[in-house]
Simulated scan of single mutants.
Amino acid sequence: MDTDRAAAVDPIDVEVGFLTPALRSDLLERWNEPQRRYHNETHLRAVLRAVDALEADGEAFDATEVRLAAWLHAAVFDPTESENNERSAVFCERVLDPSAPVEEVARLVRLMGGHRVEVGDLNGAVLSDADLAVLGSDPETYDTYAADVRHEFAHVPGERFVAGRIVALEGLLERKSVYLTRAGRDMWEKQAHANLNRELGLLRAGAAG
């Protein structure tokens, strides 16, 4: 694969089966809603690029299903609500053509609510790793991600946000590995641990101080 050429192509513009021009336009409007600071078009683009990277590194999965799920996994997003993935899955079931792999795409969208992927679920593993690829990014990109998440949840009081964030980061670090695919571990695992431990240290220090 010509990775330089692939990186130059905007994944937003790549054709995906069953993603009609009308649906693509509607989804892009959704990804650019004003309440989104992290779960926006930049995140969508990053997830699609990560899917491409996993594919280029030899991971096997159903490309159409995973890319459709990437487009739809935060189609509905309200930071004050807790059922965004379920609502996105229902939206997916409503708007996709019946001839599309609707059941599998909706299943994958629901999985992103907690990244609880069963062993052997190749599609789920790839989408989960792509969604979490930001954790293994360079420190500056990671810090921007963390700040954007805090901005989205500005309605949550500081102490409560910090406590919840600490629990979330500890949960990721307690996993056997953050990433479920071999390619994801090779590309992002080491840097993800460095980023997560660094943020966790800062949060704990702030909470103690």
Rank of each mutant, 00 (worst) to 15 (best):
D2C: 02
D4F: 13
A7R: 15
A7N: 11
A7Q: 14
A7P: 05
I12P: 06
I12G: 10
D13K: 06
D13N: 09
L19Y: 08
T20C: 11
P21K: 06
P21V: 03
A22W: 10
L23V: 09
L27S: 05
N32R: 15
R36A: 01
Y38G: 01
L44W: 01
V51K: 02
G58V: 09
A60G: 06
F61H: 05
T64D: 11
E65S: 15
E65R: 15
A69E: 09
A69Y: 08
L72K: 00
L72A: 01
V76G: 00
V76L: 06
S88I: 04
V90M: 10
F91Y: 15
V95A: 12
P101K: 04
E104P: 00
R107W: 09
R107N: 05
R110W: 08
E118P: 11
D121S: 04
L122C: 13
G124V: 02
A130L: 10
D131S: 07
V134Y: 07
T141I: 10
T141K: 13
A146R: 12
A154Q: 06
A168I: 00
L169Q: 00
L169H: 00
L173K: 02
L173M: 03
L180S: 02
L180P: 00
D186A: 15
M187Q: 14
Q191W: 06
Q191V: 07
A192W: 02
N195C: 11
N195G: 09
L196T: 07
N197T: 15
G201K: 02
L202K: 06
L203Y: 01
A207D: 07
A207M: 12
A208Q: 13
